[in-house]
């Protein structure tokens, strides 16, 4: 897949001396959903701000479909849609007027059919004549998404799209994002909800203290870093791991009542049948067994902690 966004050596130091980004390199492929994870103040919003023209970079450059966002802002910005993190909407305008304004701002002629499609998709059509200030927070978030979609961007930035949004709406939004991806839109989202990244992203980047510390295919990342465990709950407590089982490097927890087998890859998984056979050969009885997998959240926490 061709690259749609190239970020090269991007750095940002604010006038106060705070370095928000340190030489970030990132290439986004066309049509993917890329999730950018990171704690507060990691530099996610600064990164998005530079790409979208809200923040001036100190070093480096950004190419959107080959257009330098600084040198050819018009060509680059036409392609990019932004839904910022902060809820910022016009107050006194109606939903429909605000959405139409966005379309005009991006240089498109009016298109009532498209406006209606976008509003219906975000279930805002019934509210089209409502003043935005009368809407709930979740609805305002939808208006912001509608404003970004109505100018038909090829690259869409969603900065914390689920902040302050209830579960049902979040599911709706995820579906809308997938539909967009299927329509060929490239999506970059930042999130605190790891569940969201795990659910939606094709690739994941982790940013911390202004540095991109990892970029990886999601399933690959889960496979590489995802630790899995098999727990055997024994009927009788053990003082130590019996010697026939030494090869499995098991650990005993719960006062000797639980045997834990940790593994990270398929080779480890394939040893499970032999392990269970060896356990019965050693004369151990277990009343229950459990397997569990580390979530993206655990991976993320351990990555950020390491630094």
């Amino acid at each position: 897949m061709p690259a749609v966004l190239c970020i090269e050596n991007l750095g940002k130091t604010y006038p106060g001396g705070l370095t928000a980004l340190k030489s970030v390199n990132l290439t986004i492929q066309q049509g993917e959903i890329f999730a950018l994870l990171g704690p507060n103040g990691a530099g996610k919003t600064t990164l998005i701000g530079i790409v979208c023209g809200l923040v001036n970079a100190t070093t480096g450059r950004v190419l959107a479909a080959g257009h330098d966002v600084k040198r050819e802002p018009r060509a680059a910005r036409r392609l990019i849609g932004l839904v910022p993190q902060e809820l910022a909407t016009e107050a006194f305008e109606t939903v429909e007027a605000a959405v139409k304004f966005s379309r005009g701002l991006y240089g498109h002629p009016p298109d009532q059919a498209l406006v209606e499609r976008v509003l219906r998709r975000l279930t805002l059509w019934d509210k089209r004549d409502t003043k935005i200030m009368a809407l709930s927070g979740g609805m305002k978030r939808r208006v912001m998404i509608a404003k970004a979609l109505v100018h038909e961007p090829k690259i869409l930035f969603l900065d914390e799209p689920s902040a302050g949004v209830d579960v049902e709406l979040r599911r709706d939004m995820w579906q809308a994002v997938r539909d967009l991806r299927d329509a060929g839109v490239t999506i970059i989202l930042t999130t605190h909800y790891i569940e969201e990244a795990e659910e939606m992203a094709d690739r994941i980047g982790v940013i911390n203290k202004g540095e991109l510390i990892l970029v990886e295919d999601k399933t690959e990342l889960m496979r590489k870093l995802g630790r899995r465990e098999l727990r055997l709950h024994l009927t009788d407590a053990l003082h130590e791991v019996p010697s026939p089982l030494a090869a499995y490097s098991l650990t005993l927890i719960d006062g000797g009542l639980t045997l834990v087998f940790s593994f990270t890859d398929e080779a480890g998984q394939e040893r499970i049948p032999t392990l269970l056979r060896d356990v019965s050969l050693a004369g151990l009885n277990f009343r229950d067994l459990q397997t569990q997998q580390t979530s993206l959240e655990d991976i993320f926490v351990s990555l950020v902690k390491e630094r």
């Binding site: 023209g53 809200l54 910005r77 910022a88 909407t89």
Partner: peptide
């Protein structure tokens, strides 16, 4: 003041 200026700044307008 309200923050909606983000749209003006990120739009392809001179």
């Amino acid at each position: 003041w309200s923050g909606t200026i983000y749209e003006l700044l990120s739009a392809p307008v001179s």
